[in-house]
Design a protein around this nucleic acid. Structure first.
Lengths: 205, 205
DNA sequence: TCCTTTATTGACCAAATGGTCAGGAACACG
DNA sequence: CGTGTTCCTGACCATTTGGTCAATAAAGGA
């Protein structure tokens, strides 16, 4: 499409790339990378298959673009944990933000879930690199608060894992949760006070 | 292979079906249903592709067989919760059993994760049927203990979800957990005391 | 041993799928 | 306008893949 690698995008390029990524998010998060077809993506985006491949070099390229783009949104709440803030309020704020992400962006959550399940072929460097650094930083903050006796002593890393597990479960396993609860339930609405009280009890000094 | 629908399996049939299911478990849990190929399964089983399809009608058939076979193992610990037992001990026993399943059978855990992510096309009746009943029964036991003041009052269904989320996370997101922790860690060994203390605090009256 | 049943496979097929390409349509802009 | 660039598509291709089948080999039982 363009020979200039860093040429600014035209309006049409911007719009169509967005359409494609939006359609691909739905396709990949529903069927996984292998299960989604370029035709599906094209139809979801309202474009022809060759046109999709005019804007992206390959199916793989679309997937990689999605993943790296979304990773920032996914990690943002953890970066916002403030060492100067109130420990419990900061943790609960993070929990709430993460649950809100699961509620509002379940497709993104599932996309990551598929990727990790598959062994994270596109994310290995990131997982052990920047993600690990961000987590270590957050864990250090939590650890310091525990040292100061402002939070109950628990393993900070596993505390973070537990938050991920609990919040993402409601997005990734949505069908199971809904099937078990039956109709007339809003899993996310019920989950919030449950998870909040869980961490209040766990982290109370 | 056999016209008799309920004919007992010969020794060869038994062995080869087992080989196929074993190979398929690895293939499906690594790449998902769509990502796994019959050739892969055949190679993992040490059989030829036509021979695999001699023992199972289709790839789908293999998948469904695996899923339903494994569901029992997966649900067993919840059924063993004893209304006559000590409440906290019963819950912690269930948690430990579930974590042990994740540790020993991560492929099975991932197989289910893929299935649920996909919207549980093969399990919809089961999810809203027998699974729901089993969960409701367990939730009722937990609720009764809470009524008697022997466990802290929390939403029993979400308590169960939290156990699933926390324990399965270590199997399903294994690569992520290991990448973040770095080498020299055994996630499951560290997770057990963390999760146990979590539920001790949460459920203490 | 002989004969029926069960196992196994190479060769093959049709459909699906990621991707290409030449050429035409739409657009931007002097 | 006109012209160069960007955008778009129908037709096409090679590969992968689930599945079939006729034919052969191996068991098994009387």
């Amino acid at each position: 499409m363009t020979d200039q690698p860093d040429a600014p995008l035209t309006r049409i390029q911007q719009k169509n790339r967005d359409l494609i990524l939006e359609g691909a998010l739905t396709a990949f998060s529903t069927n996984g990378f292998r299960g989604a077809t370029v035709d599906q993506i094209a139809e979801a985006a309202g474009l022809s298959k060759p046109n999709v491949l005019y804007y992206f070099a390959s199916k793989d390229d679309i997937h990689k673009t999605l993943l790296t783009t979304l990773l920032d949104m996914w990690l943002a709440p953890m970066i916002r944990i403030d060492p100067q803030g109130d420990p419990l309020a900061e943790v609960l704020g993070y929990v709430r933000a993460k649950l809100e992400l699961s509620r509002r962006f379940p497709r993104e959550s599932r996309l990551f879930a598929y990727e990790i399940l598959q062994g994270a072929p596109h994310l290995t460097e990131i997982l052990g690199g920047s993600l690990r650094q961000i987590v270590d930083t957050a864990a250090a903050i939590l650890g310091a608060w525990m040292d100061q006796g402002r939070l109950a002593r628990v393993d900070p890393h596993h505390l973070i894992f537990s938050i991920w597990a609990l919040t993402q479960h409601y997005a990734d396993f949505d069908v199971q949760v809904r099937a078990v609860l039956g109709p007339g339930h809003d899993p996310f609405v019920e989950a919030e006070p449950f998870i909040e009280s869980l961490y209040r009890k766990m982290l109370a000094v």
